[in-house]
C-alpha cells in the first residue's frame, strides 16, 4: 500500500528535518514507489528511463549541473521532469529552490520540500523511513517475552494462564515486551514485536488487576521491543494423542509471511509452565548454536541399534 506525502511529512519532519516549501493542498498524493531517485541523468535530457514514480531529490550535483546550463535549457529540462508528474521534489542541504523550480512546482501542483540533511544521509534515512512506514504489520493476540535473547510469543485461550506464566518468567529475570496483545512489524526477513504505546509495560493479572511491570520488578523486567524467534501455545491437557514427544518433528507457524517454530504445550495441574517455556526457549537457543539434543540422541540410538542388529 502506498503512503502519502502527508504521512511522510508527519513521520519525517523531525527525523529527516523535512519541511514543506510549497504544496499544502497536495499532500494527499501517494508515493507510488517507495524509493528515491536523483534526477541528475534526467536533467541532462535523458528520459528514456526515468523513475518518475519516486521522490526526486535535488542534491549538490543536480544544483551544480543546473547552474551550468543556460536559462532556457534549464527551464526546458525542469519542465520536462515536472511533466512526468513526479510525486514530490525534495531539496537537500536546506538550499533555496531556484525560482523556476518553485514556479514549475506550483504550475504542475507538485509539492516541494526541503531538508537540512546532506543528500546521501537523507537518501538513506528516507529509504529506511519509507520501508518502516510501508512494512507489513499486524496486531496479534499473545504475550511477548524475551528469554535470554530469544523472543517468545506466548499464545493460548483466555484464562489458560499466559499472563501468570509471563509473570513467573519476569520473576526469573526475563523481560516483558507486551501483555496479551502484541504489535508485529516485518523488517526485512524478521519480525519485530512491541507493545501498543498506550498499554506498554502494563499487564493484567486475574484477581490483581492492572500492574505496571517496571514499578514492581524494575526496569530490567521490560523491553521496548524484541525480535520474534518462536511461538509457544498453551493448551488444556487432553491426552497423549497430539503432543510432540520427541522434538524431532518441529511444527511451524507463519506470521507476516515469516515462518517460526511453534510449540504447543499442554497445561495441567502440577506443571510449572514458566519452567517449561524457559526450557523450550533455552533448548531452541541451543539448537541455534548447532546443538540439537533430540537429533543427536536419536542418531546415537540408531547407530547403536544398527551395530547390535548386525551382530
Amino acid at each position: 500500500m502506498a503512503i502519502t506525502l502527508k504521512e511522510l511529512l508527519d513521520n519525517g519532519a523531525e527525523r529527516l528535518s523535512l519541511e514543506l516549501v510549497w504544496g499544502e493542498g497536495r499532500l494527499d498524493r501517494p508515493i507510488e514507489e517507495k524509493a528515491i531517485n536523483r534526477p541528475g541523468l534526467a536533467l541532462t535530457g535523458f528520459f528514456q528511463y526515468f523513475a518518475q514514480r519516486r521522490l526526486q531529490v535535488f542534491g549538490l550535483a543536480e544544483f551544480t549541473y543546473l547552474k551550468s546550463l543556460s536559462t532556457e535549457d534549464r527551464a526546458v529540462r525542469l519542465r520536462e521532469m515536472f511533466e512526468k508528474n513526479v510525486p514530490a521534489v525534495i531539496i537537500s542541504r536546506n538550499r533555496n529552490p531556484l525560482p523556476e523550480l518553485r514556479a514549475l512546482a506550483e504550475e504542475y501542483g507538485t509539492p516541494l520540500f526541503r531538508t537540512a540533511m546532506i543528500t546521501s544521509h537523507f537518501v538513506n534515512e528516507c529509504t529506511l523511513l519509507l520501508e518502516e512506514l510501508t512494512a507489513p504489520h499486524d496486531r496479534i493476540q499473545g504475550t511477548m517475552l524475551e528469554i535470554m535473547g530469544i523472543g517468545v510469543l506466548l499464545q493460548g485461550q483466555a484464562g489458560i494462564g499466559k499472563s501468570e506464566t509471563a509473570l513467573s518468567l519476569i520473576g526469573r529475570g526475563y523481560s516483558l515486551v507486551a501483555d496479551d496483545v502484541t504489535e508485529m512489524v516485518r523488517t526485512g526477513g524478521r519480525v519485530m514485536a512491541f507493545a501498543h504505546e498506550l498499554t506498554r509495560y502494563h499487564m493484567e493479572i486475574r484477581g490483581v488487576g492492572i500492574v505496571h511491570v517496571p514499578s514492581l520488578f524494575g526496569v530490567s523486567a521490560i523491553r521496548r521491543d524484541a525480535m520474534l524467534d518462536m511461538v509457544v501455545n498453551l493448551h488444556p491437557y487432553k491426552n497423549d494423542a497430539d503432543e510432540e514427544r520427541t522434538g524431532l518433528e518441529p511444527t511451524e507457524i507463519e506470521i507476516l509471511g515469516v515462518k517460526f517454530p511453534y510449540f504447543s504445550l499442554p497445561v495441567s495441574s502440577g506443571r510449572d509452565m514458566a519452567n517449561i517455556v524457559e526450557a523450550v526457549a533455552l533448548n531452541y537457543k541451543l539448537k541455534l548454536l548447532g546443538h540439537d539434543a533430540a537429533k543427536e540422541l536419536d542418531e546415537k540410538l540408531i547407530g547403536n541399534f544398527l551395530r547390535k542388529a548386525a551382530k
Binding site: N239, A241, R245, T246, L248, F305, L306, K308
Partner: peptide
C-alpha cells in the same frame, strides 16, 4: 524395522499405549 526403537518409533508407541 531397520533402525529399531529409536525416538520416533518410541513416540509412536507411547502415543498408541496412551490411548
Amino acid at each position: 524395522n531397520k533402525y529399531g526403537i529409536h525416538a520416533r518409533p518410541a513416540a509412536l508407541l507411547v502415543k498408541t499405549a496412551g490411548k
